[in-house]
Design a protein around this nucleic acid. Structure first.
Lengths: 250, 250
DNA sequence: TAAATAGTGTCTGTCAGACAGTATGTA
DNA sequence: TACATACTGTCTGACAGACACTATTTA
């Protein structure tokens, strides 16, 4: 029996209810460390645990719209100021027992944001905090959110290889060194500065020069760096591949 | 307001119902052409149109389980004989108006199958047919299934680059030429036989030799080819990249 | 002045793709 | 015999990574 036969035979209100939510794995970089937007749960189950921001999909909005709304609410930024934030669908999670109270299918999304101010206190989002990803190993996350975060992180690392989305972690203008820092932070390993520099400039459409340079050199010395902005490429070709990961192959 | 607040405040039965279904983009190769499993719709809306196999997610099964069940039903194969079929989640589709009757979020899946017999007549699946993908341009598909198929095809093409899943379109033993034919069919372009041969054998864990050869040479001549089976690699490294696609970059 | 960083030049090994060539089959 | 196919050898250009080097700026 297929979808259509079911629809003809069943009144939707009679069918076992499955609620649909969105959850957002929102990443940013602060102080050279990858941070994740989390919310402290106040109620059971998982009271006191951290959870991903998320909520029900409303009748009039699509999945990406719901995710964008949740992100806007939790960052306190407002939908309009989310312009430079990248948002994409990650995957859906629907194990029957993933929420002990009822059947919920969550469509997880992944967001890359530049360093945003903490949500203003007093808003609906005053419980939302950016926490370093490195500290997550010791914390328990609610529901299956640990798996969702793990999938989001792997997707993020992969996306940096093939797309110019690393620029979404930065402001509108940036140096090659700042861009390299994004890669090093997300991939968790140092890259060769000289090779990275030459590589980035050789990929068509990745970055374009603004003609300007930074006002000052680095805080610990060095020349003033040229400034770039994101180019028009949607895919990096050739890609910036991560250093070989033997463990991932087999 | 987040997911948990909603759950505390709402009885699920009161909340606007969203039905959750799975749809399956099942691909196979027949007669050197890529084929897609489709079902002819008998009822409105989209009566007479072709649609992806799919159906409601049941209370006790997870998303992948629902997709596997649907695939088993429509191919008439039975869950146990789906062993060599690759199944993965593709993406979720939830635009409010994607189904004119009610709000449905569909979690689409992607399947790679070896050439399967047509579903036996008289089963529940006697309306399911493998149709050549090349003929889809002229046909109207139901709902947003054209987009889902397009996304599935692109995912399939991409997966062949980085994973050994091309072998899932073949039987347990195959020749390098047959494997090359899978790539040529899915990517839609001829590959250099000699270079492909050397490349495949050079990727660790992609294929392993059975020691045997085909009984006869090709139908139009040539030596007997050695037989291989899938190796233990999960990822191809280095990858088999598609010939450069300029149009995809910008 | 010492140290750090930006940016460039050069070398080497790997790999994809082009091309050629041999061996082994079928019709 | 003509032709197709399997498989291998070799060359070239693209590219990643290692290393070296200069110039510029900060503390």
């Amino acid at each position: 029996m297929n979808e259509q036969d079911f629809l003809a035979a069943y009144d939707p209100r009679d069918y076992p209810a499955i609620a649909v939510t969105v959850d957002v794995v929102a990443l940013t970089i602060r102080d050279g460390a990858l941070h994740l937007l989390l919310i402290r749960r106040g109620e059971q189950p998982y009271a006191g645990h951290w959870a991903l921001p998320g909520g029900f999909v409303r009748p009039d909005e699509d999945l990406a719209g719901a995710a964008r709304r949740e992100l806007a609410e939790e960052t306190g930024l407002g939908d309009d100021r989310l312009g430079r934030v990248h948002l994409e669908q990650l995957a859906s999670y629907g194990a029957p027992e993933r929420d002990p109270r009822m059947r919920i299918v969550s469509v997880a999304h992944l967001a890359f944001a530049p360093d945003l101010p903490d949500a203003a206190a007093g808003t609906d989002a005053d419980e939302a905090v950016w926490l370093p990803v490195s500290g997550l190993a010791n914390r328990e996350l609610a529901f299956d959110h640990r798996q969702i975060v793990a999938d989001g992180l792997e997707r993020a690392r992969s996306k940096l290889e093939y797309t110019p989305l690393a620029t979404r972690f930065l402001g509108p203008e940036f140096t090659i060194g700042e861009l390299r820092s994004v890669y090093e932070t997300v991939w968790g390993q140092p890259l060769h500065a000289g090779n990275f520099h030459r590589k980035v400039l050789s990929v068509p459409g990745f970055v374009e020069s603004t003609g300007a340079s930074t006002e000052r050199g680095g805080s610990r010395g060095g020349p003033r760096a040229r400034l770039y902005r994101a180019g028009d490429a949607q895919l990096l070709h050739p890609a910036l591949l991560r250093p070989a990961r033997e463990e991932a192959v087999r």
